[in-house]
Amino acid sequence: MDDNIHTPTISSGPTSGGVPRDFSKLSMEDLMQEKTRIEEELSALSGVLSSQGTNMTNSLTTFDGFPRDDIDVAQVRTTRVRIIRLRNDHKDVMKYLEKGLHDHFANLQRTNGAGAGAADTSSTQPSATVGDSLSTAGMLETPFAKVNSVAPGSPADQAGLKAGDTIRSFGEVNWLNHERLSKVAEAVQQNEGRALTVKVARKEDSLTTTELDLQLIPRRNWGGRGLLGCHLVPL
């Protein structure tokens, strides 16, 4: 059969095969971009497997050991290898991102200590430290999800969430550790009936964005499906 009925393969990114990339040499900004790129490609590759009705563990042979004829076995194998490499790359990127943030906070603490011991510089030193702290907070609170819809009367609605809001943090979950929103789902399940602080950015118009800290209580029996009553999509 000449026509390929399956989804075409996804072109490989810069981490395909060959020598592994040295992420330790990347800046924090480059690491953030790499994290986004890897997650987007992983999502696309997952779609390739789904289009063929398979995943990372399904057998590619029939019960008697022959290659399955209902899927493109070669494509699935190539896709699986690529996913494994990307997952390893993602772990490395996250490791260096977290190390960079830890180092930054350690430097801030040392700066604070030095500033406290020097009376002559106490009036000027904290201002730089505050700026660094705000910069780091900005990195931690990079939006990672968008509210796609909110059901009327739901816990999300009562908390004040609106469609179009972008999520900066959801309890302890942020852009560094949300893992394609899976950690948000865990936080919701583990905190049923308890308030979670959700930091959101709401674009009021083309020039104005409002930052909000909302208290959201996941709960059942509100008259709809789920514990939140809203639909989040990753950015």
Rank of each mutant, 00 (worst) to 15 (best):
102 H>Y: 04
205 D>R: 03
5 I>M: 12
227 L>Y: 06
36 T>L: 14
73 V>P: 03
19 V>Y: 07
232 L>I: 08
108 L>A: 06
232 L>W: 04
112 N>Q: 09
159 A>F: 13
148 N>M: 03
100 G>F: 00
56 M>S: 03
83 I>D: 09
43 S>C: 03
119 A>Y: 06
107 N>Q: 12
100 G>K: 00
167 I>N: 08
141 E>F: 11
34 E>R: 09
175 W>A: 15
20 P>G: 10
197 T>M: 14
5 I>C: 09
5 I>Y: 12
132 D>L: 01
127 S>Y: 07
219 R>L: 02
79 T>M: 08
30 D>H: 12
26 L>T: 00
211 E>A: 13
107 N>I: 01
234 P>H: 10
69 D>K: 05
193 G>R: 11
205 D>T: 04
67 P>M: 09
43 S>M: 07
68 R>L: 00
149 S>C: 01
220 R>I: 05
115 G>Q: 07
86 L>T: 07
159 A>C: 08
176 L>C: 11
51 S>Q: 06
100 G>H: 00
14 P>K: 10
25 K>F: 00
136 T>Y: 02
17 G>F: 05
195 A>L: 06
93 V>I: 13
217 I>A: 03
230 C>I: 01
39 E>N: 08
184 V>P: 13
182 S>V: 13
40 E>P: 01
201 A>S: 14
150 V>I: 07
215 Q>G: 09
42 L>N: 10
45 L>I: 08
90 H>D: 14
124 T>K: 03
31 L>W: 06
88 N>T: 09
89 D>C: 12
27 S>G: 04
60 L>T: 01
2 D>N: 14
109 Q>W: 07
15 T>H: 02
94 M>S: 14
109 Q>L: 14
130 V>M: 10
177 N>V: 13
137 A>H: 04
182 S>D: 14
12 S>C: 04
54 T>N: 02
152 P>Y: 01
195 A>R: 03
16 S>K: 13
40 E>D: 15
145 A>E: 10
94 M>R: 10
19 V>T: 13
3 D>V: 15
230 C>R: 00
134 L>G: 00
91 K>G: 05
8 P>E: 13
60 L>Y: 07
118 A>N: 13
95 K>S: 02
55 N>E: 02
190 Q>P: 06
34 E>S: 12
48 V>I: 09
1 M>P: 14
3 D>M: 15
130 V>H: 10
224 G>P: 01
234 P>D: 13
69 D>A: 10
125 Q>P: 01
135 S>Y: 05
